[in-house]
């Protein structure tokens, strides 16, 4: 810690107060990710084992999967990784504004990915009639991708909390209610906009693009639409410029640890995309 003051610049890859020079939080996160490798390794194994000898009557994945949709969400998750890496890069240089923008972009990408997953699950259950209980493929598929989705959701929440944290005023004395309301506004904005976008897509799918379709969606979802606008507005209001904050280069390690988690969720998806989806098409 003292070296920070002495050098002026912060060396983000080494911490001189620890025996190895690796910051404690980073080491903790890497050890956790090593553990998480076993976690997802076991889960993916379960799915693949049940794909080796499918029982009679098991659904055929090829007839169920929607590769264009999955490719799109894979692409989105890759882009979220890019934004996350840029966020870490920005805060390491002390560029708070750029970090906040990148964090928001990561959150949006994460939300789009989750939206795609909701869409996909909905489609599989109601259109393709594959549920978590009616076949072993449904059981392992929904458990595996659902667990991954839960990891993404936790990541989005963590990103949101970190984003809100970056507004903590330097003077202190901010009431905790402000922080809480900011978090609530952000979460509401993400959830409501997901709901609106999904409704629009479902309506377009069902009735095709026309004025009547859009009118119908607006009629049915006007509450969610108004809510989205209010939530985004509130979030923007809480995020207004308001003096110096308690968030700078010394917090880069927190953002970086969160980033490690986020990228890990991304690489798990890289494996799932190949092992669960693409291999079925050979």
């Amino acid at each position: 810690m003292t070296s920070h003051a002495a050098n002026g610049a912060i060396d983000h890859h080494h911490d001189h107060t620890t025996s190895t020079g690796i910051p404690n939080k980073k080491l903790l996160m890497w050890a956790f990710l090593a553990s998480d490798c076993m976690f997802f390794g076991t889960l993916i194994s379960t799915h693949l084992i049940y794909r080796l000898h499918p029982p009679p009557g098991n659904p055929v994945p090829r007839q169920i999967f929607d590769i264009p949709l999955t490719s799109f969400s894979t692409f989105i998750l890759l882009m979220s990784s890019l934004m996350m890496a840029l966020a870490v890069n920005a805060i390491q240089k002390g560029n708070l504004k750029s970090m906040r923008f990148s964090l928001l972009a990561t959150i949006v990408c994460g939300a789009i990915f989750l939206g795609c997953q909701v869409f996909e699950f909905n489609n599989f259950v109601f259109e393709k009639h594959m549920t978590i209980t009616n076949s072993i493929l449904g059981t392992t598929f929904f458990t595996l991708t659902g667990t991954h989705g839960t990891h993404v959701a936790i990541g989005v929440l963590w990103l949101g909390l970190m984003y809100v944290r970056s507004f903590k005023p330097a003077t202190g004395g901010q009431p905790w209610t402000t922080t809480l309301l900011h978090v609530v506004a952000l979460v509401a904005a993400v959830l409501l906009s997901m709901k609106v976008v999904l409704s629009v897509i479902w309506a377009l799918e069902a009735h095709g693009l026309s004025g009547a379709t859009l009118g119908g969606v607006v009629g049915a979802q006007w509450l969610a639409i108004v809510g989205t606008v209010i939530a985004i507005g509130a979030e923007r209001w809480f995020a207004r410029p308001a003096g110096p904050v308690q968030f700078d280069q010394s917090n880069a390690i927190d953002v970086e640890s969160m980033g490690l988690y986020w990228h890990f969720v991304d690489i798990v998806w890289i494996v799932i995309f190949t092992a669960v989806y693409l291999l079925e098409y050979l």
């Binding site: 890859h13 020079g21 980073k26 080491l27 890497w30 050890a31 090593a34 490798c37 490690l260 991304d266």
Partner: peptide, 19 residues
């Protein structure tokens, strides 16, 4: 993205044990 290239070798070793 996860900076292993710029970090201490030990991080890589640690992760690869699990991997």
């Amino acid at each position: 993205f996860m900076h292993l290239r710029w970090d201490k070798l030990f991080c890589t070793i640690l992760f690869f044990i699990g991997l």
